[in-house]
Amino acid sequence: MNFLEIIEKGGISMYPLLLLSILSISTILERLLFWSRVVFKEKKIFNRIMEAAERNWDLVGKIAQEHINHPLGNFVYSPFRLSNPDPDMFHLALESAAEEQLARMRKGDKLLEAIIALSPLLGLFGTVWGLIQALSSIKISDLGTADSSGVTLGIGESLISTAVGLLVAIISLSFYRLFQAFWSNQIRILRRMGSRLEVMYRDRWMRSGSEESEGIIPGDDEYSFINIKPPMTNDQ
């Protein structure tokens, strides 16, 4: 059977199943394109940002801004949008950006979940409807005769919708689990990067404050960084 014959013989539930399959394929392709951009670049961006944080903090914001369209770059650049953030504000900015990026990564998940749940049910409905139509025309006197062969054929055709529904659900579920694995991995990466950056930022903030309290004005040495002012001491 070709595609049109499958649609015709599958019954009335084949049309909503066809719509769900189109939605599933379009969502999967869009997510594959999104995750390919995220996964293939994340290691390079991660290494560049962490190397800059260890050697020259001033470059962290610039590197993150260069990759503002990538979740990692957008995540790291969020606190650099603030003016003179203290460590607590730095943490809140990273936390807010992480929630935003993780929500963006889950785009399309609800649609795939609905397709996974509805496809088998629609397939089963098509099969039950086909059985009703096939068995409604059978007579007791026709059993075992040539007249009952059409009923047998009708029952076989009614199972097409169940097979199609299961196929759509299986494909959608496979990619849904794949995207969930990518999402879980991004949580670990954002948590790891955010924790390390917070520790470095807090350390530099405290060192800058102690140097100014001793009358030393930080310059361009390894402890200075952009747009950060130490907290005022009691003597000031």
Results as ranks from 00 to 15, higher is better:
residue 4 L to W: 09
residue 10 G to N: 11
residue 13 S to G: 14
residue 14 M to Q: 01
residue 15 Y to K: 12
residue 16 P to K: 08
residue 21 S to Q: 02
residue 21 S to L: 10
residue 22 I to M: 12
residue 29 L to K: 11
residue 31 R to A: 11
residue 33 L to S: 11
residue 36 S to Q: 07
residue 40 F to Q: 08
residue 41 K to S: 13
residue 43 K to H: 07
residue 44 K to W: 02
residue 48 R to G: 01
residue 48 R to V: 06
residue 51 E to M: 14
residue 53 A to P: 03
residue 54 E to W: 00
residue 57 W to L: 06
residue 61 G to R: 08
residue 63 I to R: 13
residue 66 E to G: 11
residue 69 N to R: 08
residue 70 H to A: 13
residue 70 H to V: 06
residue 71 P to M: 03
residue 73 G to D: 12
residue 76 V to Q: 13
residue 76 V to Y: 02
residue 88 D to I: 12
residue 88 D to Y: 10
residue 93 A to Q: 14
residue 97 A to G: 06
residue 100 E to P: 13
residue 108 G to I: 07
residue 116 I to V: 09
residue 116 I to Y: 09
residue 120 P to G: 12
residue 122 L to G: 04
residue 125 F to S: 13
residue 126 G to Y: 00
residue 128 V to K: 01
residue 131 L to N: 10
residue 131 L to E: 10
residue 131 L to C: 05
residue 136 S to A: 13
residue 142 D to Q: 04
residue 149 S to D: 07
residue 152 T to K: 07
residue 160 I to Y: 09
residue 161 S to N: 06
residue 165 G to F: 04
residue 166 L to E: 03
residue 166 L to V: 10
residue 169 A to T: 04
residue 169 A to K: 08
residue 170 I to A: 03
residue 174 S to P: 02
residue 176 Y to D: 12
residue 176 Y to V: 04
residue 178 L to N: 03
residue 183 W to M: 00
residue 192 R to I: 02
residue 195 S to H: 00
residue 198 E to L: 14
residue 198 E to F: 05
residue 199 V to D: 15
residue 199 V to H: 08
residue 201 Y to E: 07
residue 213 S to W: 06
residue 216 I to G: 03
residue 217 I to F: 06
residue 218 P to L: 04
residue 221 D to R: 07
residue 223 Y to I: 08
residue 229 K to E: 11
residue 230 P to L: 08
residue 235 D to M: 04
